[in-house]
Nucleic acid binder design. Structure first.
Lengths: 130, 130
DNA sequence: CATGACGTTTACGTAAACGTCAACATGCCT
DNA sequence: AGGCATGTTGACGTTTACGTAAACGTCATG
């Protein structure tokens, strides 16, 4: 017997509203099984949701996410026709992510600098930076 | 003689529209000097713009960016009153950024897997995954 | 059986981040 | 003086990602 979830259970797990989940479905990001009119989410839906939210945190738009998930699905579904294209998309995304890694490192460094200036000033309040 | 830039020069440098730059000004993100009505951007504006765009790429909203820049300004301006608060904000942001680093690593790994599956299939097209 | 708790669809509202005119000023070139 | 590039300020339009409310179905429970 496989674990399934209602929409409210899922929304609780991921700390999003049910409205959001239904919206994602409207946008073609997930398509849970139905039992009558009720939505039933299985493990694969949960995994997909996890991917969606992760991509969102990284700033991808919902339609970008949908396209990418569809693409990966087709690739893992055996549609090797588009193999080369998928590889290109992957490399494109990889480039974006690596740019973000750099951005993060830069910002972390900036924050470190600001932090140090504050800490210094808190130790010796009189000191004015040259 | 210090380097300055017109709005179109700046927009070209950062590959954004002049409209975007004016909008950021409306939102209090940058405040260039004026010469008559014309906007004149100096090096410090350029640096600020760089910070803005970097933060944007990381998914921060414009108002978050404005608040943060203001905060950092006040901190570097000597308003040590808020020192502790600034440190808290910095730690908060640091947590977000580190979460993003994890997300990126996860996605990169996922992409690697998809890529491998495609490459394998391209080498031996007949093979079906068990 | 009525009263929640939970679910559904449909539809309008909204905040963020610009795009897209319009209508006008200003400087420079010929 | 005329023309063109470049600039300015509104003001309205658009897309994305949901929020919010209305109006209704379904099921368990007192």
């Amino acid at each position: 017997m496989v674990q399934t979830y209602s929409i409210s259970e899922l929304s609780e797990q991921f700390d999003i509203t049910a409205r959001t989940i239904r919206f994602y479905e409207d946008q073609g990001l997930i398509s849970p099984r139905r039992e009558g009119t009720r939505r039933i989410y299985e493990e694969r839906d949960r995994v997909r949701m996890k991917l969606i939210l992760r991509a969102k945190r990284l700033g991808f738009t919902l339609s970008e996410i949908r396209e990418t998930l569809d693409l990966y699905d087709s690739a893992s579904g055996g549609e090797l026709a588009q193999g080369k294209f998928v590889l290109e998309v992957i490399n494109h995304h990889r480039a974006i992510l690596m740019q973000q890694q750099n951005d993060i490192l830069d910002v972390l460094q900036d924050m470190k600098n600001v932090e140090q200036r504050i800490l210094n000033r808190m130790k010796s309040p009189e000191q004015k930076a040259q």
